[in-house]
Design a protein around this nucleic acid. Structure first.
Lengths: 194, 194
DNA sequence: TATCTAATTAGATATATATCTAATTAGTTG
DNA sequence: CAACTAATTAGATATATATCTAATTAGATA
């Protein structure tokens, strides 16, 4: 939804007379003169506001004989209300992702030296997975590696390549077939359950 | 929620600059000059808008050293979004009740003569229950009736008081003990399942 | 077709407000 | 306390708009 449409909608309902009309119509359809009477305003004024309400599609009309009844369209109102919610919820999701990222970064800062070597393998499962995933970064998805290549890669981080290589397999980050290693797609990895 | 508060809130967010500020702040807090820079406006203008945003409590501030950071308060925005939804949903409930009432009235008009006598007992269960409940109206809750009194009451609507009296009992509208009849409370009645 | 009525339009007026520049305030830091 | 800076306030201007009265239009009905 473009910003402009939201602005127009909220400007439209951000008026006491128009909100009163909405409330009135929420009880059922009414014709212009009736609305004017109930609100103590002239028909011309009501026309003015109805035009704006129609412009944002929250009101439609239907003729019955000589008089025109105006109806509220609740679904449109609900639609914009949800758009407003999204405007802030989108933010919540982003904030959550950001927090997760910060948390992971903290773990990585703690377990790797400034020149990028792993100090030791974390005991906590959650932290261990973060560390393993960090060491996975240099490997390319789809590329096939020999065991020797994998060992060399791991040794850039830590001497005990055997343990770490085993962890890669056990936690489903990679699979091995005939001594050839390959990255699994992320959706197959062991997820960190909070 | 008073109408006035809703109007003020929607008027506040019904402005392009303010909605842009809200969107910006939904990514994270910012200080005044930063907002002014990103929107291409002067700090004075930003102050003007922030004042209005604070007035409706969707923005709060926190000082860090020499600069003041402005934060969005998503819960307040969500609160008003829900109030907007309620404005239309309240209507849906009322409309439903009204429709049910109209439906019942139609059945009653069909099965009773203009002088209030029952033409015949409806075959459809749903309609029968509406008719029975209509004939229950003259009886007082809590009052104890003899069988003869019940019969007299029913005879005002229809000759076959025995059948109807039995229906009253079978559908749990009344109970009988030692030949004394009494109305059950409505929550015990047979409900009409659509 | 002529007439009636609800709705709309046109035009006037008063009020509200978004924005700017310039001056001032509040608060931090040396 | 003095100097600095971000934020606010004051005042001016231009634009938007809510409301009214009076005139006009659109549509239904006799």
């Amino acid at each position: 939804m473009q910003l402009h449409r939201l602005v127009t909608f909220f400007k439209t309902i951000g008026d006491p007379t128009r909100l009163r009309i909405i409330k009135l119509l929420s009880q059922g359809p009414l014709h212009g003169q009736a609305i004017a009477g109930k609100l103590g305003l002239t028909p011309a004024t009501i026309t003015h506001h109805l035009k704006k309400l129609r412009d944002v599609n929250i009101v439609y009309e239907r003729r019955d004989g000589n008089i025109i009844y105006f109806y509220l369209q609740p679904s449109v109102v609900q639609h914009y209300a949800h758009a407003l919610l999204d405007l802030t919820e989108q933010n919540e999701v982003k904030k959550e992702m950001k927090e997760k990222f910060v948390e992971r970064q903290k773990v990585i800062d703690n377990f790797f030296t400034s020149d990028g070597r792993l100090k030791n393998i974390p005991a906590q499962r959650k932290k261990k997975l973060i560390v393993l995933e960090h060491m996975l970064k240099g490997l390319k998805p789809g590329k096939r590696y020999t065991e020797k290549e994998i060992n060399e890669h791991i040794k850039k981080f830590h001497e005990d390549y055997a343990t770490i290589r085993r962890e890669f397999i056990m936690n489903n980050y990679m699979y091995r077939e005939n001594g050839i290693y390959e990255l699994n797609p992320p959706e197959m990895w062991h997820k960190i359950d909070e």
